[in-house]
C-alpha cells in the first residue's frame, strides 16, 4: 500500500462498506426471488415435477447463498480491525475440512438423486394412448404434421423438398394422403399425452414450450421424441431456443390446447 506504515486504529470503513454492499445485494436479490416479479411462465403441463425440483434447488442454494455471502460480509467487517496487533497463524483443521466436504457431498447427492428420478420420468416411454404429432424445424418456422385418420405418417423424402412441399411429402404413399400439415400452429387436446417427433430440415433448432417445461433440440438427420401432457386449455407460445440463423428470434409459433371435444372437432375440419 502507498500510505501504510502508521498503524491506524478501529475498523476500516472499506471493510464495512464492502460488507454492507454484499449484504444489500443479498437482501435485494433474495427479496426479488420472494416477490416472484419475474417467474417461471404459468405451468400448463404435467411437468410440475421440474418446478418442484427447481424450487428445491432454489431453497438449498438460496440458503447457501445467503449464509455464505452474509458470512463473507461479516468476516470483512469483523476482521478489518486495524488496531489488532496480529492475525492468527492457523491454517489447518481436519474436523472443519471433513465437515464441509461431507456436508456438501450429502446435500449434492440428495439433489442428484431427486433430479435423476425426474429425468428418467421425462425421458420414459410415452403412454400407449399418446397422440402422435410431428414438428419439423426449418429456418425460421415450425411445421407440424398430424398422421390423419389412418394414424400413420406418410413417407417423406428430402429429395422432394421444394418451396411448395415443405416436408417433402411423397404423394405416392397412401399414408400421406390424409396427413395434416400446418405452419407455426400446433393443436393439442388437453389431458391427453402428446408424443412429439422432432426433426429439422436444416439447422439445429430447439423446440421450446416455456409453459410446458419442454425443451428439446431438433437436429438435422435425427428424430428425437418427447412426450408430455398438456393440462390447461389456452394458447401458448412456441419458441426456438437454439441459434439457427438470423431469423432465430422470429421463430415463434402458437400451441393451442383445446378441450378433447374441441380437438376432435378441429381435427374433423382438417380432413380432406
Amino acid at each position: 500500500m502507498e500510505e501504510k506504515a502508521t498503524v491506524k486504529s478501529g475498523r476500516s470503513g472499506e471493510g464495512l462498506f464492502l460488507a454492507l454492499l454484499i449484504w444489500l445485494m443479498v437482501i435485494v436479490t433474495t427479496a426479488l426471488f420472494f416477490k416472484r416479479a419475474w417467474w417461471l411462465p404459468t405451468l400448463a403441463s404435467d411437468r410440475g415435477g421440474i418446478d418442484g425440483l427447481f424450487f428445491a434447488i432454489l431453497i438449498v442454494t438460496g440458503i447457501a447463498f445467503v449464509v455464505v455471502q452474509a458470512m463473507l460480509g461479516y468476516f470483512l467487517w469483523r476482521f478489518s480491525d486495524r488496531s489488532v496487533a496480529r492475525a492468527a497463524y492457523w491454517h489447518e483443521s481436519r474436523p472443519l475440512e471433513i465437515t464441509w466436504t461431507l456436508g456438501t457431498t450429502v446435500i449434492l447427492s440428495i439433489l442428484i438423486l431427486v433430479g435423476l428420478r425426474l429425468w428418467t420420468r421425462v425421458f420414459s416411454a410415452p403412454p400407449d394412448d399418446a397422440l402422435p404429432v410431428e414438428v419439423t424445424g426449418q429456418q425460421f418456422e415450425w411445421t407440424s404434421r398430424y398422421p390423419g385418420k389412418d394414424g400413420a405418417f406418410g413417407r417423406t423424402d428430402p429429395k422432394l423438398f421444394s418451396p411448395d412441399n415443405r416436408l417433402g411429402l411423397d404423394e405416392q404413399d397412401p399414408a400421406s394422403k390424409d396427413d395434416i400439415v400446418l405452419v407455426n400452429q400446433l393443436y393439442l387436446p388437453v389431458d391427453r399425452p402428446a408424443r412429439v417427433r422432432l426433426r429439422s430440415k436444416d439447422m439445429l433448432h430447439s423446440f421450446f414450450l416455456p409453459n410446458f417445461r419442454v425443451k428439446q433440440d431438433t437436429v438435422p438427420g435425427m428424430t428425437v421424441e418427447n412426450w408430455f401432457v398438456p393440462t390447461k386449455e389456452g394458447d401458448y407460445e412456441i419458441a426456438c431456443a437454439e441459434l439457427c440463423g438470423l431469423g432465430h428470434y422470429k421463430m415463434r409459433g402458437l400451441l393451442h390446447v383445446l378441450s378433447q371435444e374441441g380437438f376432435e372437432k378441429w381435427l374433423a375440419e382438417q380432413g380432406p
Partner: peptide
C-alpha cells in the same frame, strides 16, 4: 428471404 420462407 431467410426471415419469410414463402418469399422467393
Amino acid at each position: 428471404c431467410d426471415v419469410h420462407s414463402w418469399m422467393g
